[in-house]
Structure formats: C-alpha cells, structure tokens
Amino acid sequence: MAADTGRDLLVQDVGQGDHVCLAFADDAEQRHVLSHYLADGLRRGERVLYFADRNTPDEVLGWLPAAGVDPGPLVSRGQLTVTTADDSYLASGTFDPDTMVAVLRQEVAASLAAGYTGFRVSGEMGWALREVPGADRLAEYETKVNAVFAEGRASAVCQYDARLFGAEQLHGFDRCHPSTAELRPLYQDARLRLVPAFRSGHHALRVVGTVDHTSTATLAAALETLLDRPGDVYVDMRELEFIDLAGVRALAHAADRMAAGRRLHVVDLAPLMAQVVRLVGFDDIPSLSVDTAEDPA
C-alpha cells in the first residue's frame, strides 16, 4: 500500500496554493500544527480565518502567544478572525458546498483587495458528524474547493480529529486533499525521524532514515505509542534507508503484543528485509503483515 496522497508537508512548508488535510490523534498534535500555521500566515501578512468546532474560539486564540503572536490587535483590525462553524457557514442550518466555495472565493478576493498578501483558512470539521443537513456533501466540497486554492493566493488546513472520525471517513476526506500535514515527530535526530501519520485513515508511523543498534529502543518506544492508539496500525517504510535485524524484531514483537483482531501493517519494506522477516519466522506472527514496494500483497 502506498501513501494516500502525493505529499506530506511540514507545517512550516504549507503555503499559498496548498489544500492540506490534517488528521490528528490528540490535542497536542493539533495545537502544534495549527499554532504554527496560523502564526506563519499572520507574520506573512495574510488574512487568517479559523472555524472552530470542538475548541472554543478563545481556546484557539490562546495557542498563539506561545507561537510568538499577540492575537488581540490582529483580531481588532480584522486580519485574524476566529469563529465557529455553527456561527458562520452553518448558521443557516444547512451545509451547501457550492455556497461555501463561493464564499471562500470572495474571502480570498476581498483579502487581496484589502492589501493582505494572501488568505489562509482552517476549519475543525467535527460538525460533519452531527445531524447537519448537507453534511453528507462534505467530500464534494473538499473536492470542489481545490480549485480555489489551486488559483494560488490562498491555502487551507482542514482538520479531521481521528478520535471522532472513523478510519474509512478519514481515508475518504484525506483523498480529497492534494497533500497531508506532517505531525510533530515522536523522535528526531540526524539519522532517524519517527513521525506519526495516517495511512488509509489508520494510525501510522513513518520511519525516515536509519534504524540500527543505537536506535532500536527509540523505535520500540515509538511503536508502543502507536500501539496505544485504536485499530490497525501502519508502519510506513517508504523513506527507510536501513534497518537491522533488531529493528525488524522490534516491529515483529510489537505486533505480537497486539490484542487479537488488531494488526500491524509494515508497508513499503525493502524486499531483502521482507525476506529476513520470513526466514527468521516473524511471518508466523498472525498480527504482523508485511508488504514490499515491489510486491504489494
């Protein structure tokens, strides 16, 4: 299985033209990405609009001082607006994709006309799980709105809380977005990055770089964090440069500790290492599945 979308974007690299899906598993991950995204836009002179849902607007504004931004003056002069979905585009009681796309296009034009360098918007999408007429058309909106951001002077981060949305829903919405926001790494040094992510809507860990005897324990600890999350989990080896046997064993033994019915999927593993899995007998562990890039199962 390959990644869901073309690009994993670091939040600091999200810029005009991007329509990014953020799937996240806890409040800290959400706050990390959003406080950077909002503060970066404000510093660049963009107009920033935020539609809260699970958080209150005050909570969102409360993220900004830690990111080096005092929100008060920005709100007063209209560069920053933090409202709720219910008080804005859902105020009519119905969600209409075409109206929403038209409103955003006007917001972009108005922002540029007012002298801002661009426009950025982010929304918490949890409302879509409530009984809102038109909520079933959210994917249609996410697809149609790509045109607004493709025009170049605006960007968006759409937030899907994995504690609220199911794996299939997450996967479906993720596919509507050209790129995905990268979450804060669980671990990072010059040789190895371990980054939480989502694959097919399931909790995942991207292993980037090299795993050897100096980092076995680090990988094992990150896998424990991953296993604490519900459902099947994925370990994405697309950006792995090297892993030794102890690293592979950490994967196998983590899978072996999972409750019955759950699986750990190692995807895009180098063919040699998939062979090592078989010859050591790790393939006898029923909760472990291994796919190679060359030999998708």
């Binding site: 030794d244 007998g281 562990i285």
Partner: peptide, 8 residues
C-alpha cells in the same frame, strides 16, 4: 521468532 534476541 519470539525470543528476545539471537536472530541476526
């Protein structure tokens, strides 16, 4: 496969 070490 389940022993803690000694597969290398």
């Amino acid at each position: 496969p389940r022993q803690p070490r000694g597969h290398g």
